[in-house]
Nucleic acid binder design. Sequence first.
DNA 1: AATATAATATGACAAATGTCATAAAAAATA
DNA 2: TATTTTTTATGACATTTGTCATATTATATT
Lengths: 201, 201
Amino acid sequence: MTTVYLAEDQEMLNTALSTLLNLEDSIEVIGTATNGESALKDIIKLQPDIAILDIEMPKMSGLEIASQLRIIKQNVKVIILTTFAQASYFEQAVSAKVNAYLLKDSPTDELIETIQEVLDGKTIFAPELVTSILTSEKNPLTNREIDILKQIDLGLSSQEIAKKVFLSDGTVRNYISSILSKTGTRSRIEALYIARKNKWI
Amino acid sequence: MTTVYLAEDQEMLNTALSTLLNLEDSIEVIGTATNGESALKDIIKLQPDIAILDIEMPKMSGLEIASQLRIIKQNVKVIILTTFAQASYFEQAVSAKVNAYLLKDSPTDELIETIQEVLDGKTIFAPELVTSILTSEKNPLTNREIDILKQIDLGLSSQEIAKKVFLSDGTVRNYISSILSKTGTRSRIEALYIARKNKWI
DNA sequence: AATATAATATGACAAATGTCATAAAAAATA
DNA sequence: TATTTTTTATGACATTTGTCATATTATATT
C-alpha cells in the first residue's frame, strides 16, 4: 500500500483528486492540505511514501516544500503537479531534485503510472513539459537587465530605478537600450510583453 | 437520477471531478469534454439536466457555451465552475443567465448542494465571488479609453495607435492623459498595471 | 430648432525615453 | 602583475510622452 500526501489549494480539486487516488487499490491518501505550510508540517509528521504538490499555493509553494524536504533529508518522493510548463519552475524542480513533474493536462492514468515509477526509483518529467522548455526562447538578458526590467514593470522612471539599484540614470538608460536591442523591441512596454510571454519575469 | 455533463480542459482534473460526482448516489456524469466545441455538441445531443462548465477551455469558453445554449433555447441548467473571480466573466455569466457560478476554491459539498439548488430553480453565485466583485475598483474608463489602453498594451506608440483607431495623435495623447488621471498613475506602464490588476483589460 | 454635453483636434512646452559614442572603473583571466 | 572583459558612467541629441489650454465638431438633450 503506497501512502500519498496531496497539497492543492483549490479545495474542490483537492477533494476530487484525493478521492480518485483513494479509488486505486494500491494507494492510500493519508493527508491533504490547501496551503504549503500545513503541507510541509504534515508531510514531516506523517512520512508518506509520496507527496503530490501543486506549485502555486498560499504560504509556501510546492517547489519550496520540495526544497525544504531535501534540505532536512526527508525520504518522501515528490511529484509536482502543475498547470505551468514554465522554465523557471522547471529549473527549480530540477535543483530541488523532485522525482516527477507532471502537468494537470495529463490523463489520470499517467499520474498512477508515475506514482509507480517514482517508487521504482525513476525520475519523470512530462514530455510536453520538456518539449515546451526546449522550444521556448532562451533568455538573452543578464541578471542586471532582468532586475531592471522588473523595476520597469513597476512603472518606475529611469531616475527612480537608478536610485533603487544604486546606478546612474544614464547607466539605467543604457541597460534599457540593451534590453530593447536583445529582445528586438522598441519600447519598455514591448520588452515587458516579450519577457512576460517567455516567462523571463 | 440527475444527469450531468462536465467540461474541463485539464484532463486529470476532469477525470477526478467526474469520478467524484459519479460517487454521489443521485448524480450520473453522462459525458465529459476537454474543449468547448465538443462540449456544446454533446450537450445538445445528450440533453443532460445540468452542464458544469469551466470558463477557459480551447475552442470555446464555458461562457460562450452557456450563451449558445440560451440562444438555441436548450433547457439544460448551467453551472460555471471557475478559478476566476473576475468582473467581466461575472457580467457575461449574468447576461448568459447561468444558473450558478462557483469557484474551484469552494468545498465539494458546495457543488453537490448547488446541483440540487439549481434543479430546484434557484440561481447561485458563490458569495466570495459577489464580495470580490463588489469590492473591486469600479472601472472609471470610457470604452474609448479602454480601447486605447489595450493598444498601449501592444506596445504601440501614440502615432501608431492614432492611425489604428482613426484619431489624431494629439487626441490619443489626450486620452492617455485622461487615463493616467483617472487611474491615478503617471505613466503608461503604471496605468496598464492598475488596469490588469483590476481586470479592466 | 436651440442648447448642452461629449468627443475630437490643435498647439505649445517640459520632461522622459532611447540611441550612440566614448570613457572610466571594476572584475575576471592569463 | 598585466591584460582583457565586463560593468558603469557621461554627454549629446532626436523623438516620444504627457500636460494643459483652447477650439471645433459631433451627438444628445430640451
